[in-house]
């Protein structure tokens, strides 16, 4: 069949083959790498933007938090002061209690020491008196010449000057 304008199917197919190679090659070598790079860059800047927005939101939240804190700072100070006062009272009470206990303990200890000393002194005095009476009785018994009363007095007189002399 003679096609007008010298149209040739074989050459059309050859043109098609040629264009297929060109289109495939350009897609693989040029179009896709450039597009991928552009996409990568877009993603990078989107991430940067996202991060910046996130940081900005965090900063705004922080500002709001600080504002809220400043608004409640008086109230909070009052609460803290009351709490501190309460803690201090408790500590003071505790210290007073401890001091009282220590005082009781010291007093009890002092009483016990005084009692012990008193007992020791009584015991010692009793012992001295006993010794004195025994000594006197021995002397009287051993020197029974004359009136016992006179002997006792003379012995006593003799011993007193001796003791003074000493």
């Amino acid at each position: 069949m003679n096609i007008p304008l010298n149209i040739d199917w074989q050459q059309i197919l050859l043109h098609l083959f040629n264009f297929a190679i060109l289109a495939g090659g350009l897609y693989l070598i040029l179009y896709r790498p450039v597009k991928e790079f552009m996409k990568k860059r877009e993603e990078y800047y989107q991430n940067v933007d996202k991060e910046a927005k996130k940081h900005r939101k965090e900063a705004e939240d922080l500002v709001h938090w600080y504002h809220a804190q400043l608004e409640h700072v008086d109230e909070e100070l009052e609460q803290k002061r009351a709490k501190a006062q309460k803690e201090m009272d408790q500590m003071r009470e505790q210290q007073i209690e401890e001091t009282r206990k220590q005082a009781h303990a010291i007093l009890a200890q002092a009483k016990e020491a005084a009692q012990h000393e008193h007992d020791v002194m009584i015991q010692q005095t009793k012992k001295e008196l006993t010794d004195m009476v025994v000594t006197a009785a021995e002397k009287i018994t051993l020197k029974d010449q004359g009136d016992p009363y006179e002997q006792f007095l003379s012995i006593a007189e003799r011993e007193v000057p001796d003791g003074q002399n000493k």
Binding site: F19, L22, A23, L26, Y27, Y31, R32
Partner: peptide
């Protein structure tokens, strides 16, 4: 991809 290749050609 097609219009890129066709346009370049």
């Amino acid at each position: 991809a097609y219009v890129f290749a066709a346009g370049a050609f």
